[in-house]
Design a protein around this nucleic acid. Structure first.
Lengths: 232, 232
DNA sequence: CAGTGGTCTAGACCACAGC
DNA sequence: CTGTGGTCTAGACCACTGC
């Protein structure tokens, strides 16, 4: 069991970067030189460099060379779905409302539709161990043939609801995360009697050509949610 | 200007997936068959498949074939740094404290060090347009030769502070995001007089071998922060 | 056993940088 | 012009799968 040559090449260059021999912006030994250095063919060297590029270590400029990338400190990957997070998981939902409405200005704007189009609104409460943990509203642009089956809606996540109509792959998503104080209505829904903050997550679903399909706003009790992210 | 062959191959297969001709779990035409279908060499076909794999559309099992991947709805990419977010940007900081302390149980645990080790604590306030927007605490394991220069600390983000000692690349990061009600001390620091929630972001920095290097906790005024994420 | 994907080679031609 | 990276070929051998 030996590591493939391209892996060795990638790791050697990675070592030089981590050790400081190569700094961000520096040019890397050319591919032909690396061929000689490692006694490998150019395709193999390029495969090694492709690994480094996909890991964000290097980038290339045609006609010039391969360069060490300045690492992006800001990027994190988080795993989010309204039904489960790192400290709690929804085991029951209650459907508060399923309706067809005309959007107000703000909603029409957000979904990029005119105010006389029909919009489906779904309001739900999420429960963990019998306690309400989140209040959830979804707005979907109404499309012909869109099946609104209450039973199916109960436990579905947003992408699942949407995916009845479109391919699972052809969806882009955007997330906004912020903190808020609950109003009186929210306090009633979530059984909040004393001071407690809400973590609000807005989820926007877009078709592959960037047209808004739906908007979801989930307000979590602050004591029942923690989002986790990581880099590298 | 024509697209390279491997791009065409990737897009054709992507089309079949989005159109529903290929569903998650389905096996894809073998590489040798694709060679014939597109009149390309196997390396070119494999490059096309590599593109699809890196985009999460397919995965491969050696000896069996390439298969359509079940899309991961939960994954989002967010861009986070304590100095700037989508609705505000820190333009001034105030250094409240730089000190060397012995960690309490919880902190020692979090940094995976014994309680008699020295820990550097840095407490800062962040301002936007003259208003305090966030309270920031960082704990770093003290290491010999670690320079604590107040001027440098003022405006540095967490990775920047750490990177004085280590290579920029050799750092892993973890994030926890939650919402809280501010206590009285926090309200004083952040000039909060009425009801306002905090968005708290905990940042943990780890060396490449998963040893904790530092812990940062930043409490943002809820009206001054919104985190943004996206998928695809 | 035949078919699959994983690795690798030694060439080739191209567009582009920079002198 | 030479050197660079980007694309592509037509082979090859390997380890693995499933019959």
């Amino acid at each position: 069991m030996v590591a493939p040559v391209y892996t060795k090449i990638a790791e050697e260059i990675k070592r030089r970067i981590n050790k400081g021999e190569l700094k961000p912006g520096d040019i890397i030994t050319s591919e032909n030189m690396l061929c000689k250095e490692f006694g490998a063919s150019r395709m193999t060297v390029r495969k090694g460099l492709a690994v480094l590029a996909s890991e964000g270590y290097i980038y290339s400029i045609p006609g010039k060379g391969n360069f060490v990338q300045k690492p992006d400190f800001k990027k994190y990957i988080i795993s989010y779905d309204e039904m489960s997070n790192s400290i709690s998981s929804v085991d029951k939902t209650r459907l508060l409302e399923v309706n067809i409405i005309r959007p107000d200005e703000k909603l029409a704007n957000s979904l990029q539709i005119s105010k006389n189009k029909n919009v489906i609104v779904i309001r739900r409460l999420f429960y963990t161990d019998g306690n309400p943990v989140a209040y959830d509203v979804k707005y979907l642009q109404y499309q012909r043939g869109m099946p609104i089956v209450e039973k199916e809606l109960q436990h579905a996540t947003f992408p699942e609801i949407i995916s009845k109509g479109t391919s699972l792959f052809a969806i882009k998503k955007e997330l906004s995360i912020y903190a808020r104080i609950p109003d009186e209505e929210m306090k009633r829904y979530l059984n909040i009697y004393d001071q407690l903050a809400l973590l609000v997550v807005e989820q926007k679903l877009l078709s592959c050509d960037n047209k808004p399909i739906g908007l979801g706003i989930t307000s979590f009790r602050g004591d029942y949610i923690k989002l986790q992210g990581f880099s590298e």
